[in-house]
Every structure is written in structure tokens, then in C-alpha cells.
């Protein structure tokens, strides 16, 4: 029973939050707002799935915000300035992002750097590259096909939500049903055992940082498309929300524990909190304070749950 509560505590928090908000603002439970939450949350969801995978291997990825900004800028720049079509621009941007992920992985696996410091360095490098590439100015992308990625709908469902759903499904199948995915739990749960069982720990780690960068790249491109422009400062603090979401969703900071569905629950907790703060008209500054607070509380709750 206790295990049950622990495993579903995120869901309880989410339900309680929704209940609270539906009583305190009448707008919360409208269809439009709920769709809006899902849409707003899709970016975070994609990033959190990637960060969550690095956490499964007892790692972390602090560079996702920078990678998102970098890839958004590259995509925008290639479309606007280099006149590349989106079918070429987007893959190039994604590959650029993944190479930053590869850098993370190499620093961690072969440079023996602690993950948080390696990804902190990449965070600075990625942000710097973005500023250099954009010269510190936003790049506006009027290309309708590109803008469609962020604002279009298919059968009434916003495209970002569809992309999120597809990635969620892929992440779920990967983590729950493939050997490589299951082996990530082994790497995070007991690296030595994993190694002795013939699992390539180095390959697994390189893979998760590349996946995390891929997710961040995807999020960055969607974000750019939604705003019609690439902002060099976009995605700052995204890593914080992504880690908070993963932890709230039952992902352990110490590796070996977590699931795609759990992360989604955490993501929606953060999404509903953000939405609630907006509905309650709380200033963005205080929102940042509250998010820092929620982040710390999420970690504290998790630590207590593990101790019991």
C-alpha cells in the first residue's frame, strides 16, 4: 500500500492541484484552457523526457535550454538567411543539437567529468554559439510551412501536441520494451553489474545525452516555429523545469528509477502550476520564485519518500 502511494503520489498531487484550481478559478476547467495547458506543456514534456533519460543513468542534463535555443536559431537562420528549405534546415539544426549532446556524452564518458559540470559547460558553450550565430538578435521566420509546426492543427489537434504524443509513445516503447531501454535502468541502478552483464555502459550514456539533445532540439524548433522567431535567450531555466518534472514524476536523482508516464505526470503538474499562476495573474517574477520553490519542494518530497 505504501509503495502504491509512493508510486502514484505524483498523480495525487496533480489531481489535488486540478481540484484546487477548478474551485479557485472558473476558467480552469474550460475546454479551451485544458487544450491550452496541453499545448503549453508540450515543449516541456519533450525536453523532460530527454532529461529524464539522462537521469535514469544517474546523470543529468543542464544544457537543454541552451541546446533548444541553439537549434531554434540554426533552423531559423538556415531558412531565412541561407534560404534553405525547412526539409533541409530542420535536420541540419537537429544534427547540430545532437552533436552538442554528443559533446556532453564524450566529456562524461571519456573525460570522466561529473555530468552536471559537463552539461553546465555545454550550457555555456551552446548559449555562446547561439549568441554568436544570431549576433544577439532575434531571427524572424515568416516561412508558413515552418510556422505551421508550432501553430498548425491536424484534425483539430495542435501539431506540437501530436509531436509530443509521438515522442512520448516512442519514449515509452523504448524505455519499457526495448533491450537498450531496459539496460539504461541497469546502468543507473548498478553500473558495475551492468558492465559485468556485458552491457556497454559507455554506449548507453552517449546515447542518452544524444537523445536528450535531440529532444531539446525538437523543442527548440517547435518553440521557434510557435513564436515565428528564434530568440537567442530562449529556453533559459528550461532545465530547471524539466528536472523538477522528472523528479515529481518519480524519476530518481540517483539513477535507475523512472518511467515515461511518470515523467508526463510530473510535466503536467508543472504545466498546471504554471497555468494556475497565470490564471491567478501572478507576475512572472513571482512565478520564477514559486517555480524555484516548487523545484526544491519536489526534491525534498522525493528524498523523504525514498527514506521511508
Amino acid at each position: 500500500m505504501r509503495g502504491l502511494i509512493q508510486r502514484f503520489s505524483g498523480l495525487f498531487i496533480l489531481l489535488a492541484l486540478c481540484l484546487f484550481l477548478s474551485f479557485s478559478t472558473e476558467y480552469f476547467l474550460t475546454q479551451r484552457n485544458l487544450v491550452n495547458i496541453v499545448l503549453q506543456t508540450s515543449i516541456l514534456a519533450i525536453v523532460a523526457l530527454g532529461v529524464g533519460m539522462t537521469m535514469l543513468t544517474a546523470g543529468i542534463d543542464l544544457s537543454v535550454g541552451s541546446v533548444a535555443a541553439f537549434c531554434g536559431a540554426i533552423a531559423a537562420g538556415l531558412i531565412v538567411e541561407s534560404q534553405l528549405g525547412i526539409w533541409l534546415a530542420i535536420p541540419v539544426a537537429v544534427v547540430a543539437g545532437i552533436s552538442l549532446g554528443l559533446l556532453n556524452g564524450l566529456l562524461i564518458v571519456y573525460g570522466s567529468l561529473p555530468p552536471f559540470i559537463a552539461t553546465l559547460a555545454t550550457m555555456a558553450i551552446g548559449r555562446g554559439l547561439t549568441l554568436v550565430y544570431t549576433d544577439g538578435r532575434p531571427i524572424t521566420v515568416p516561412d508558413p510551412a515552418f510556422v505551421f509546426i508550432g501553430n498548425g492543427e491536424v484534425l483539430g489537434v495542435p501539431l506540437p501536441v501530436i509531436i509530443m504524443a509521438a515522442l512520448l509513445l516512442t519514449a515509452y516503447l523504448f524505455l519499457a520494451h526495448t533491450r537498450t531501454g531496459r539496460n539504461l535502468y541497469a546502468i543507473g541502478g548498478n553500473e558495475k553489474t551492468a558492465h559485468l552483464a556485458g552491457i556497454s555502459v559507455a554506449r548507453g550514456k552517449l546515447l542518452v545525452y544524444m537523445i536528450s539533445a535531440f529532444a531539446a532540439a525538437t523543442a527548440g524548433i517547435i518553440l521557434t516555429a510557435r513564436l515565428w522567431s528564434a530568440q537567442p535567450t530562449t529556453g533559459m531555466g528550461l532545465e530547471l523545469e524539466a528536472i523538477a518534472a522528472a523528479v515529481l514524476g518519480g524519476t530518481s536523482l540517483f539513477g535507475g528509477r523512472g518511467s515515461a508516464w511518470g515523467i508526463m505526470v510530473g510535466v503536467f503538474i508543472i504545466g498546471v502550476v504554471s497555468n494556475g499562476l497565470n490564471l491567478l495573474e501572478i507576475s512572472s517574477y513571482y512565478q520564477q520564485v514559486i517555480k524555484g520553490f516548487v523545484f526544491i519542494m519536489a526534491v525534498i518530497l522525493d528524498m523523504y519518500a525514498r527514506k521511508k
Binding site: I60, L240, G292, F295, V299, Y304
Partner: peptide, 23 residues
């Protein structure tokens, strides 16, 4: 006391204190 990894604890504090400064 809570045994939060240092980089996590101070990452939260970073957002919290910056937000307070802005607010």
C-alpha cells in the same frame, strides 16, 4: 539535512533568489 545533491539544491536556490530579486 535533506541530503539533496548540492547542484540540485543550489539550482533551485538560483531560480528562487533571482526571482525574488526581480520581484
Amino acid at each position: 539535512r535533506i541530503k539533496v545533491p548540492p547542484f540540485i539544491a543550489t539550482l533551485g536556490m538560483m531560480s528562487f533568489a533571482r526571482g525574488l530579486a526581480l520581484a
